[in-house]
């Protein structure tokens, strides 16, 4: 046995080491950084500016939540409250469309005014 051990040790071990099964790193930094192939190696101002603006409508900058990538990876509740911070307020017209007020349509106005009769006219 020792002889074969000795033989084995004399054999050249390739220096290549394999990574094994690829795994997703446990900690990933999702904050925007310059793309590796970007010529300037820096992101334009607009990236930070957009996130700053988007922040007031949702927790876009909260790294550990929103930017984790997986669709449906987190529950809505875990994203934290959506209320404006102390001293801030949301203008309804600045909110996403689904939170904004709807316009009355002419048919609706008529329906109200006629007590619903216009629907059968």
């Amino acid at each position: 046995m020792n002889a074969s051990k000795q033989l084995l040790s004399q054999q050249r071990q390739p220096l290549i080491r394999f990574l094994g099964k690829r795994t997703i790193p446990s900690k990933i930094d999702h904050t925007p950084q310059a793309h590796p192939a970007a010529p300037t190696h820096q992101l334009p101002e607009s990236f930070a500016a957009y996130r700053q603006k988007a922040q007031q409508h949702g927790p876009l900058n909260q790294q550990h939540h929103f930017s984790s990538g997986g669709i449906g990876g987190q529950s809505g509740a875990s994203l934290g409250p959506v209320e404006a911070g102390k001293g801030n307020y949301f203008d309804r017209s600045e909110l996403p469309k689904r939170f904004q007020r709807l316009a009355w349509t002419q048919a609706e106005i008529e329906a109200v005014e006629s007590g619903g009769a216009s629907l059968f006219a």
């Binding site: 469309k97 904004q100 007020r101 709807l102 316009a103 009355w104 349509t105 609706e108 329906a111 629907l119």
Partner: peptide, 26 residues
């Protein structure tokens, strides 16, 4: 209030155009 004024037979999609202007109170 408004709900009761509109019979079930009339689907709301008839009343509201998709993606219409959305600014007044409701």
């Amino acid at each position: 209030m408004f709900r009761s004024a509109v019979p079930r037979a009339a689907p709301r999609s008839l009343l509201r155009p998709v993606g219409g202007a959305q600014s007044t109170f409701r």
